[in-house]
Each structure stands twice: as structure tokens, then as C-alpha cells.
Design a protein around this nucleic acid. Structure first.
Length: 286
DNA sequence: TTTACTGT
């Protein structure tokens, strides 16, 4: 009887130690995940405002940027990365696109063939490569960083916006935080069969650019639709961050002080960006 | 080529 009791106690102690290690491991993992996310975000990664099928996502870590991946849309719902001004504008040669097994859905590098859509980068090749290096550049070619974009948007209007970020905005501020992603129609069923392979086709794309000063951060936000010519002035597409939250169901910068957050997100303020100097700059590719 | 495809 006494022997049995001793054995039981020993067993309980072992289980206790095992549980302790699992919990400790979990806490450390969380901590490291948090450290990693802090490198690529400002005031918290985007979260969903209300729990819904279409805004649910999981975070994929990459060198140089993070992705909020949706298994429902089979799309990145957001990417988050930081850029700074660079002296050396040379980058490594453009690599091949790569499948990403983490998406679970088989999105191949040829999935968009013949669809009329480009494999549009969300975290851009050039900016990530110039700021974060070769390994980060390779990561931007994961199919989990792509979303279907019409060529006139991807190669012209969107390209002009990305060029403005690196050549015009980054040199004006020490550091920029950028979040970009797709916008889908309000009603899930209206668009559910509008897909390239398994990948749902967005109706538009957003980009939020923040100069992250703690007291008085500045932000520009854009929504650009698929159907553009490509030579439109960039400032035609200015919106507030609240507008983007309303269209995507995401909550940006939720760790920000509420007063600062509401000012930053509700207004369209272009002071300090000198947008007019680049808004009408023609694209490199006609 | 700071975008990307199609057709070779």
C-alpha cells in the first residue's frame, strides 16, 4: 500500500516537471515571437476588430517582413515592414518566385498563368532588398507575399507609390513603418468564386506609411483599385486609416495611446510629406 | 530594369 502511494507520488512529480517545462517553453516561445514581431512592426501587428472568418489570419515570419496569412482568402491580408533611407541603391538580381509550404494551400509559382493578373508583391522586392539584404529579398518572392494585381496597377501606379516611398519619403524621415494589403468586397459570397487558382482576387489594395514619432506620428494612407490606367496622381487615392479599417475589418496600431491613435487614424493629413513633389511623377515602365 | 508577362 505504502509502495503504491510512493510510486504514484513520483509519477505526479514527473508530470509536474513536464508541465512546468511545457509552460516555460511556451512562455519563452511567446517572448521570442514577440521580440521578432517588434522588429518589423510599430505599436502592434494588425489584429481583427471583430472575430470573423474573413479577417482571421496567422502570422508568418520572414527575414525583413511579417505576413498575416488568411487560409480563407488564400491571400496575405497584410504585410508589415520597416524601411530607412539607403546610400547604396544596388540590390541583388531578381530571383525566381518560390512556393511557400506554410500556406498549406498549394499556391504554385505558375498559379497565375494566363489569368491576366500579375503576381504582385505586397512586401516589395526593391525596398526590402535595399534595406534588409539578400536573404530578405529572397523571402519577398514567396508566393505567400503575392496577390493578384492587374498589370496597370502593379507595374505603374503601385510601382510609382513604392518608388515614392524609397526615393522620396524614406530620405525625409529616419525610419518608416509600412503596412500594406488587399481589400475585398464587403460581402463574402459576392467574391468567393472570383479566384486565380485558389487565390481570391482583391478589388483594391491599401498601403499605410507611418513616420513613427512617439508623440506625434505622421501617416499617409492609400487605397488603389485594380482598374486604373496607371498615370493617375497618387494623391487621388488618399484615405484615412479608419477608412482602411472599415474596408478590411483589421485594427492597426492597437497598442498606440487611444488619443494619439484616434487623431492619427481619423484624419487625412499630408503636412510634412511633400506629396505634391512626387504625386505626378511618371512611372519607369510605360 | 526599384514592375512583370508571354512567347520563344
Amino acid at each position: 500500500m505504502g509502495k503504491l502511494r510512493l510510486g504514484w507520488r513520483r509519477q505526479a512529480r514527473r508530470i509536474g516537471i513536464l508541465v512546468l517545462f511545457v509552460v516555460l517553453g511556451g512562455v519563452l516561445w511567446q517572448y521570442q515571437e514577440r521580440q521578432h514581431q517588434d522588429m518589423y512592426t510599430w505599436q502592434g501587428v494588425p489584429t481583427w476588430e471583430a472575430l470573423s472568418l474573413t479577417s482571421f489570419h496567422r502570422v508568418l515570419r520572414n527575414d525583413g517582413y511579417l505576413v498575416g496569412w488568411s487560409d480563407v482568402r488564400v491571400n496575405p491580408l497584410w504585410v508589415s515592414y520597416q524601411v530607412a533611407a539607403v546610400d547604396d541603391t544596388r540590390i541583388g538580381s531578381r530571383p525566381d518566385f518560390r512556393p511557400d509550404w506554410r500556406t498549406l494551400w498549394p499556391v504554385g509559382t505558375d498559379s497565375y498563368s494566363g489569368s491576366g493578373y500579375d503576381r504582385g508583391h505586397l512586401a516589395p522586392n526593391y525596398a526590402i532588398a535595399a534595406v534588409h539584404g539578400r536573404s530578405a529579398q529572397l523571402d519577398t518572392f514567396y508566393m505567400s507575399n503575392m496577390t493578384p494585381q492587374r498589370p496597370n496597377l502593379n507595374r505603374r501606379l503601385w510601382q510609382r507609390l513604392e518608388e515614392a516611398v524609397m526615393d522620396h519619403f524614406a530620405p525625409r524621415f529616419d525610419r518608416l513603418q509600412i503596412i500594406t494589403g488587399p481589400v475585398f468586397p464587403d460581402k463574402l459570397m459576392d467574391n468567393v468564386f472570383n479566384r486565380v487558382g485558389l487565390v481570391e482576387v482583391p478589388e483594391a489594395f491599401y498601403k499605410i506609411i507611418v513616420a513613427p514619432h512617439d508623440e506625434a506620428p505622421l501617416a499617409l494612407a492609400f487605397i488603389m483599385p485594380q482598374d486604373v490606367r496607371g498615370n493617375e496622381p497618387l494623391d487621388d487615392y488618399l484615405v484615412s486609416i479608419d477608412d482602411i479599417e472599415a474596408r478590411t475589418g483589421l485594427d492597426f496600431f492597437h497598442e498606440l495611446n487611444d488619443n494619439v491613435e484616434s487623431v492619427l487614424e481619423s484624419e487625412i493629413r499630408t503636412d510634412g510629406w511633400a506629396l505634391e513633389e512626387v504625386a505626378k511623377k511618371p512611372g519607369r515602365y510605360q
